[in-house]
Nucleic acid binder design. Structure first.
Length: 296
DNA sequence: AATTAGCGCAACCGCCATTGC
DNA sequence: GGCAATGGCGGTTGCGCTAAT
């Protein structure tokens, strides 16, 4: 027995939304707010599926939506983020204010996909099928140097597949915290074994921990990656990378470094000064974070 | 002018994770 | 813990527009 459909398909409108439907939906959400999508159509008097209402709102009616005219900067960011994240359109969209995942997905599949298809005049991927982008990227015979576009598909690209958009917390443990937890909870760092949940340690606690040494309880919601991409990553040589879930998920990562800088002013970033550098290489970040993002 | 092919984009569909009972 | 409801996401489809023939 399968799941019941989200709504009865009978008697519902499909296809393009009319201006009247848009107005009804907008007015209803203005009054009642978003959510309860299943019940929304009936209560609002719309002959639409709840999912359809949600999609229409999120992709079209929601305030602050920017439509069309994706700038070269935005395109560049999309490409870089896609190189890092893969087809995680919602995460990519979260990095582009006012843009929706659907728009970015469409833009990728058409505009950028077309660029990627135009790699070689005699390439078979010029045949123009809608899925040729994927074919090109998956073609093992297609060598990287054959790509003429500025953004060749990187076969070795370390695409992070974060599945944790709804995770609530993550704690990056420094050696000091690990040590503290060892003392308190019996966490064995050397053996990479967790015998208990990490203790939430505030920067103001008794132990002398630099508050910048770790991120405590930062939210793993939809904004997480936005914030992550904005932040400056410390040099791996001094960051004792113990990354784990706050709930004690045993995805402890030991990068094997144990040097601490005197100050964060001494920090150097292997991938450049900023994620917004024109020469910034997401591959470096991806490689660096590869193991650390296993928990995503 | 009529037809065809390609393109852009809104919308749909199915699956999965989370939440609440 | 199990199940259903709900929300969210990514892949796909279909329609309308436009350029090419």
């Amino acid at each position: 027995m399968g799941r019941s459909p989200c709504c009865s398909k009978q008697g519902l409108n499909k296809g393009a939304w009319t201006a009247i439907e848009d107005k009804i939906l907008t007015e209803y959400i203005k009054i009642h707010g978003v959510g309860k999508w299943r019940h929304l159509p009936k209560r609002a008097g719309l002959k639409r599926c709840g999912k359809s209402c949600r999609l229409r709102w999120l992709n079209y009616l929601r305030p602050g939506i920017k439509r069309g005219n994706i700038t070269s900067d935005e395109e560049d960011l999309i490409i870089r983020l896609h190189n890092l994240l893969g087809n995680r359109w919602s995460l990519i969209a979260g990095r582009l204010p006012g843009r929706t995942d659907n728009e970015i997905k469409n833009y990728w599949n058409t505009n950028i996909g077309r660029k990627l298809r135009n790699v070689t005049p005699n390439s078979s991927i010029m045949s123009g099928s809608r899925s040729s982008l994927h074919s090109a990227q998956e073609d093992p015979n297609l060598k990287t140097q054959e790509w003429n576009c500025p953004y060749p598909p990187n076969k070795d690209s370390c695409v992070v597949h974060p599945k944790a958009t709804r995770w609530t917390k993550v704690t990056v443990l420094t050696r000091e915290i690990i040590q503290l937890n060892e003392n308190i909870e019996g966490i064995n760092v050397g053996d990479n074994k967790m015998k208990g949940s990490p203790v939430s340690v505030s920067p103001s606690s008794e132990c002398n921990i630099d508050p910048l040494d770790f991120m405590e309880d930062f939210e793993m919601d939809g904004n997480f990656f936005s914030e992550l991409l904005k932040m400056d990553f410390p040099e791996p040589s001094f960051l004792e990378n113990k990354i784990m879930e706050d709930n004690g998920n045993p995805s402890l990562v030991d990068k094997g470094h144990n040097l601490c800088p005197k100050s964060y002013n001494d920090a150097h970033f292997p991938w450049g000064n900023s994620l917004y550098d024109t020469d910034f290489d997401f591959q470096s970040v991806a490689t660096y974070m590869e193991s650390g993002f296993d928990w995503l």
